[in-house]
Design a protein around this nucleic acid. Sequence first.
DNA 1: CACAATTATGAGCAATTGTTCAGTTCGTCC
DNA 2: GGACGAACTGAACAATTGCTCATAATTGTG
Lengths: 207, 207
Amino acid sequence: MTSEQRRIQPRKQPRQIRAELTRQRILTAAAHIFAEYGYAAGTTNRIAERARVSIGSLYQYYPNKDAILAELLTRHLDGDRATETLRAHKDRPDPLEDIIRVFVHTVIENHLDDPALLRIMLEQAPRSSELIERITQQEWEMIGDLRELLDRHPEARVNDKDTAARLVAYTVELTVHSLVAAPNSIDVTRLENELVAMITSYLRTER
Amino acid sequence: MTSEQRRIQPRKQPRQIRAELTRQRILTAAAHIFAEYGYAAGTTNRIAERARVSIGSLYQYYPNKDAILAELLTRHLDGDRATETLRAHKDRPDPLEDIIRVFVHTVIENHLDDPALLRIMLEQAPRSSELIERITQQEWEMIGDLRELLDRHPEARVNDKDTAARLVAYTVELTVHSLVAAPNSIDVTRLENELVAMITSYLRTER
DNA sequence: CACAATTATGAGCAATTGTTCAGTTCGTCC
DNA sequence: GGACGAACTGAACAATTGCTCATAATTGTG
């Protein structure tokens, strides 16, 4: 930032395709290593070895170990379509059950990619303030959208809408996360059906 | 084991009260340190320091670091009254909602003790096969009891009872765990109310 | 080909951490 | 009070790990 910038290009772009490939190899290897060994035991040397790259190269692309997991997590969060799906459907005149189903379905899809890695990332990732904020923000977005759904949809009859929105968001995220990544994995279709049934009946029941 | 044993006493019992106290001090200190620093950064030296005990003494009572967390977890699991509470109530002629409420309430109570430590234990504990088994068994007991409740209680109307039992067990455990230990903690009474409402309406609704 | 910029290498450093063990202190019992 | 074992101490060891840096290889350019 000291010298004048003539270009608007993002800094430090790789000049050769080779570099981009190496970077990608490191990331892929890291995903495998972290998923298999966990974060602490997933050493940078192991990652480099698996990527068939020297440890020096690894540190040319990532300033430290945390940064590798951070990028993996960022990519996952970027690929998360749950919030926008909910937002796109929450004002439609569809039956409540349909909206909930689309939402649940999207969350499940999001977890089917690499459950083991996802588990590591969410449970063992170093709690850097930046990433925490990122995740928290995404959570609250989802809760906010759910809250609006409860306010507007004619079928919704819950009393404590604030708590309900949080409960639903957490229930879906957590049960899907746990039951999909579980060693004794559940049938995904059944999970979706029951989850939708549970939430829908809850939201519709007057008390 | 080389010499003949005349006594049937359990081996290696502490002979002096001093020893028992030291052991207790170590455990208490470990609980604090793990809760504050997490598992990896909660070093044995830090624990010993906090317990005002030399590192050597610590290793006289615990063969290694894992063993300390294992004992903490064991004690927590031993203190878990959720399964028995459910078992005690599941065959009573009470309204379904009451049974569910007692169950949810017990789970919440169990998490109110030391949420931070519990979080560490469940999320960062080294996955020794022994402890995993212990936890898994306790989980399946709970699921089994829920399953029986669904079979016998007249108000229960779910279709897919197997999936429902698992879903309910996980929903309660996970949401309570997350929402109670969350930095932005939720009102516990509200959580209980909504959780009970959600599960009850789910289990009672015919489809 | 020359040469410079980019990319890759890997031995080794610095720091941390779990653990040991030779020696000291304390408690108990005759 | 003396003797023996239980309990305690903490400096030091061994292993691991994240990371650096001097050097080498590769690629693009004229």
